[in-house]
Amino acid sequence: MVIVEVVISLLVLVGSFFLFVGSLGLAKLPDLMRRLHGPTKATTLGIGSMLIASMLYFWAVEGNPSIHELLITLFLFLTAPVTAQMIAKAHILRETRERKALPDTGRSVGWATLDPAEADERSEVTRTISTP
């Protein structure tokens, strides 16, 4: 029982530490693309380990298993890359300086954010979802 409590406490502390590191990265790093690294990674693991702690607590100490938390973890793991990519795309579109720093695509076309018309016509991706 004591071991379980120690594990839960450690998981909670590790989770809050990673949340802190994510926010510190956001406040400390010098430009947006570098700042993006802190929140996307540290926060997913931070929240993940906290939710594991909570799951472990209600399962091992209280005795009523709660699987709820998996849903939040799953949701955050699915959405973190999406938000990161949306922010990166908007940043590339808005900052001329950033645009000049981009490497070549290695293809005959440019990056999708910068020529959206091309992206719709020349896409070679196979889709299983119909687009209107």
Binding site: I8, L32, R35, P39, I47, S54, I87, H91
Partner: peptide
């Protein structure tokens, strides 16, 4: 920039989720 602020808001929301989970654990 405005995107720094959007990213900050997103991180703030995630911090709040963490806080809610900790408080749920604290109040059992």
């Amino acid at each position: 920039g405005v995107l720094d602020r959007i990213l900050a808001l997103d991180t703030l929301v995630i911090n709040t989720i963490g806080l809610i989970v900790v408080i749920g654990l604290w109040f059992r």
